[in-house]
């Protein structure tokens, strides 16, 4: 069986490499993006199976990407938004735009992976 593809958009290198390592361990093929522009390009070329997207990124924010996925690409792609600062307005916007989950930093990678796996089973 072919591995599921996970697009990880996170501008923090350290966190990105740790997460990428962990997702790989979970059996995903990980595509790493450093900013919003890169994410949009990747999405236009090929749809991944899961998108994990930081909210604060250069060029396009996580919420803009989410809006692009749902309203631009009309896709039901599972999208997980991660946010540095707990911000209720952002959280609300994310769910209104159709995020599958909203996860606030500091993030324990194990918990993040457990949450994502569980949500993916449910969908």
């Amino acid at each position: 069986m072919k591995n599921q593809v996970l697009l990880l958009a996170e501008d923090d290198e350290l966190f990105a490499s740790l997460l990428s390592f962990r997702f790989k361990k979970e059996g995903y093929d990980v595509i790493l993006c450093k900013d919003g522009k890169e994410v949009k390009e990747k999405l236009n070329n090929e749809m991944p199976d899961v998108l994990v997207c930081d909210i604060m990124m250069p060029y396009f924010s996580g919420l803009e990407i989410l809006d692009f996925v749902r309203n631009g690409l009309k896709s039901n792609l599972p999208v997980f938004i991660i946010s540095a600062a707990g911000n209720e307005t952002n959280e609300l916007s994310a769910f209104k735009l159709g995020a599958n989950d909203f996860i606030t930093k500091p993030i324990n990678p194990s918990v993040l992976i457990a949450r994502i796996t569980r949500k993916l089973i449910l969908t």
Binding site: E13, L14, S17, L18, F21, R22, K25, N108, P109, S110
Partner: peptide
């Protein structure tokens, strides 16, 4: 952090280098 790297020292080393 090593736990998060699932005990993989080489990943930890990579993270520290980063």
């Amino acid at each position: 952090i090593l736990d998060e790297c699932m005990g993989d020292i080489s990943i930890l080393e990579e993270l520290i280098q980063l």
